[in-house]
Structure formats: structure tokens, C-alpha cells
Amino acid sequence: MPKATFRIWRGERGDGAWVDFETEVSEGMVVLDAVHDIQAEQAADLAVRWNCKAGKCGSCSAEINGMPRLMCMTRLDTLPLDEPVTIEPMKAFPHVRDLVTDVSWNYEVKKRIKPFKPRPPDAADGTWRMAQEDVERVQEFRKCIECFLCQDVCHVLRDHHKHDSFIGPRFLVHTAGLEMHPLDTEDRLADLKEKQGIGYCNITKCCTKVCPEHITITDNAIIPLKERVVDEFYDPIAKLFRIFRPKKTE
């Protein structure tokens, strides 16, 4: 069988170096297969996070030849094998070891987003009615497998480290899924503007390009949310109405 070289970033807490491994490749193999073979035969303690190996759980995110991708969905026959294939951990999160990063920030961010709050049920038996065409928009956002590749590629997080003031594309998609849910009654627009930094996104669409679920993150989730925020807080006519509207507290 032909062989290929895999140049893997190895080390702990940000300190590390490239290490080359040569292993056999066969038809249909994906990058994660090569990593597993290396782990089984050459480096038993190689740290790699993975689960389903079918593109459904979003665990094996890494940067392959510099591109944020799922290792389990990147076939070797789509890569040039006459030169080393580089595999390194995501850059937007603290490094743990080898290919593993600490993605716990994402879980903290999600907790701060106001949860789903449905309207009262439509029918006496406690159920709701929704049309298929009305749920499809939200179903696109709910395809997200939380691989955090969109967070990794986003320059606001990756280069400018605005983790304290910007929630990133993943959680803008999550918020869009709640805001556009036909049953939801919660208002998250003030949070988006004040606490979650939606204004930082300048629509470079890098997140959309790397999404393995092909969610149209920027066009379908972020831009409509930006428009809602603008309508709520910056629309001059709405502002005029607010000025003349008697305030409840006075």
C-alpha cells in the first residue's frame, strides 16, 4: 500500500512542535483513520478528540493543511499526498495537548443565552400547530453539530480574542434558531447588541465557508439578526415613536 506523511502538532498547553509520521493509506480513508493508525502503531498517547466518525457529533475538529475541518469527513483522496498533510489543533481556543483544545468557553456562552420560551399551547391537549414551511428556516440552524469550526475561523475570536464580548457565529446561529422559532416569545435583541457583540461581525462569511453542515450562517442567521437589532435600536422612525411614547415609569 502507498504511504503518506502526516505532520502532526504535538505538545502541551501551547508548547509543541511538528512531528512527522508515515503511515499506509488505502482507498476511502479519511484523515481521522490515519490519526488512529498512528495512535495504534506509533504514538499510543497521541491526544485526539473524536466520537461518531460520521460527521454527526462535531468532536474531531482540527486544522488540516491550514483549513478548519472535521478529521472524519476529510478524505485523503481530496488532499495532495505527495507532500506532508499537516494536522494541528484549533487556534481560537486554549490548547490542551496535541490535537485537543479546551472548548469549554462555548458551553459557558450558551448558558448565558436566554432559553426557549414558548407561547401557550394552541390546542386543548397542550400541543402546538406549526406549518412545515415555517419550521424549515429554524431546522437549518438546528442542523448545527457544535463542532465550533465557525468559532475557530472567525477573526473576531481567532485574531482579536474578543471571547468576553462576542459570542461567535455558533451562538448567533443558536440565537437565530430561538428568535425565529415559530413558538418562541423571548426577546434577545438587547442582549445581542449590548452583551453578545453582534456588531463585531463584519460579514466576511468565513464561518459559512467552513461549516461542515453547510448552514448558511452569515446570510440566513447573522444578517437577519443584525437587521432585527437595527430595526429595534437604530431605526429613526421607530426612535421617533419611542421619544413621543409616554414612558411607563414616569
Binding site: 426557549f116 414558548p118 399551547p121 402546538w128 400547530r129 406549518a131 412545515q132 419550521v135 429554524v138 418562541d184
Partner: peptide
């Protein structure tokens, strides 16, 4: 299953808007 819907699940629908 109905409880999941109350917690935000978005399942496919029948023509009359129920869970398919």
C-alpha cells in the same frame, strides 16, 4: 415526545401542523 416540543424541539410537520 410532546414535552420535547415544549422544550424547543422542531420536528417535521403534518399538513395540519402536527408532529409528522
Amino acid at each position: 415526545v410532546r414535552e420535547l416540543e415544549a422544550w424547543g424541539a422542531v420536528m417535521d410537520r403534518t399538513k395540519d401542523g402536527k408532529i409528522l
